[in-house]
Design a protein around this nucleic acid. Structure first.
Lengths: 257, 257
DNA sequence: CGGCGAATTGACGGACGTCAACTGCTGTGG
DNA sequence: CCACAGCAGTTGACGTCCGTCAATTCGCCG
């Protein structure tokens, strides 16, 4: 699929490409592919060597890890996310698998070109560092959530985060299947179900993918959301306008726990 | 404390400073402090804004996070580790606290200078990206370990990792108090004790800080170590000689789960 | 209409956290 | 030199959280 002019402009606005010089940008795009993948397509399996940096322009992607026949979802990505950047920078094997969830448009930039341009264009290299630093901090938040909170608390905070991102509505829409959410939160689907049932006491009403938070203050007293764990305004957003926060459809980036 | 010539040479060998140009290096060192801290000194509390990049030259440092009056250790660092680099790159507040465990020599580099030099010296910027990418991948391994394995399995793999790092000896020395290890592995001291007791069936004999692995094959069949989780040869080591792996005393870098 | 998968619910067992008591070591002070 | 306090570590009892297995319901799509 050829890269359209309109796409080029969108890509150019990515924070870590905006910092690149005009020549750098052109060379990066030169050997890049823009490809449309169907839903549930494996893009990369953990252990694979990584030849491209992936940039999700449309659709959604899931990052997962496995061990001993068990699998866990590490992150869910929405449009304008980059992924497996760290493996590309180090030219190392992937530590996570990546698969599309919906039909997705993905830009693939040559890893070798990326590394070469980073060594040439300091502004670009710095922007990549910032992107990586944002990813790193997302994982720190994840680990803290995972190690310090119980399942119900993780769910409660997830709901509050979603509420903020969806514009402080009373009724939020779960953006993924519950079994996917369960894996992201580090529990089984059965336990997620029970966690939702427990939250009924705190004014949480579940109706399919619709979740109504009728007593936000009560829920918040349980959840104890924390600026140093909960990504209400992700690092990755730094440097762009607030536009992405205002409305739902264009929101995501990274949806870690 | 003034920076000694001998220290300068050691510092210059750090992988992410080795890539810096001579001028860059001089400017980074210009406004830097080398400071000796006693044991159990708080260097930084989560939420603090971060003015310096820290480089541990001697001693040991613990990185921790808290929520709701609970605390967990996120990493234990040995000599020649950098820490809170991500916060410095983004000029953001720290997500973890840092404290010395032993008396420690720490080099502090101005964050503002670091960012400025990254924007000027592309080679240096790239090296910082590599450092960050290595840290990121360390956390990915941690999360996978945390979400996919049970406590006993995490301990078993920790022991195997230590065995490799200590030169494949039969009897390893735990480098930290057991309650510290417990927190790092995401469990309580009591449960760590029981986990050790369980591992007796797999040929693990505990004697204070000395742990003998009498049947490595049996233990390994339980632990199922995985190159994509267990950091037997950390990313951060890329680019330096193998010297650090050969012997115990000079080993560490990062000791994540 | 039938079948498949997601979601829920119940029953059960195992893993894990909490509380308490006890041991052993170490450093301190009489 | 010994008594004692203090802390790390261990062990036991208990309760809760969580994963597993099974059965059921529901909605969606062929």
């Amino acid at each position: 699929m050829p890269i359209k002019e309109a796409d080029l402009e969108r890509i150019r606005e990515l924070p870590f490409l905006k910092a690149a010089g005009e020549d750098t940008f052109r060379r990066l795009i030169q050997g890049a592919f823009l490809q449309r993948f169907p839903a549930s397509t494996t893009l990369l399996t953990e252990g694979d060597s990584v030849d491209f940096l992936y940039i999700l322009l449309g659709g959604s992607v899931e990052l997962s890890g496995t061990w001993n026949d068990k699998e866990t979802i590490l992150a869910l990505l929405g449009p304008l996310s980059t992924f497996i950047l760290a493996a590309v920078v180090l030219d190392a094997q992937a530590l996570m698998s990546a698969a599309t969830r919906d039909r997705s448009d993905i830009l693939m930039i040559s890893g070798e070109t990326l590394r070469r341009e980073m060594r040439e264009d300091a502004g670009f290299g710095f922007a990549v560092s910032q992107e990586l630093a944002g990813c790193y901090r997302g994982l720190v938040r994840s680990i803290k959530s995972q190690k310090l909170r119980g399942g119900i608390e993780r769910l409660a905070n997830y709901l509050i985060t979603q509420q903020v991102r969806q514009g402080d509505v009373e009724t939020i829409t779960l953006p993924h299947e519950k079994r996917v959410l369960a894996s992201l939160l580090g529990m089984t689907p059965e336990n997620l179900s029970r966690a939702f049932a427990n939250l009924a006491d705190y004014g949480v009403v579940v109706n399919g993918p619709l979740v109504t938070i009728s007593r936000p203050v009560v829920l918040s007293r349980l959840a104890k959301p924390d600026a140093l764990i909960d990504n209400h305004a992700p690092d990755a957003m730094r440097g762009r306008g607030k536009a992405m926060f205002e409305a739902w459809p264009n929101q995501p980036q990274q949806m870690t726990v």
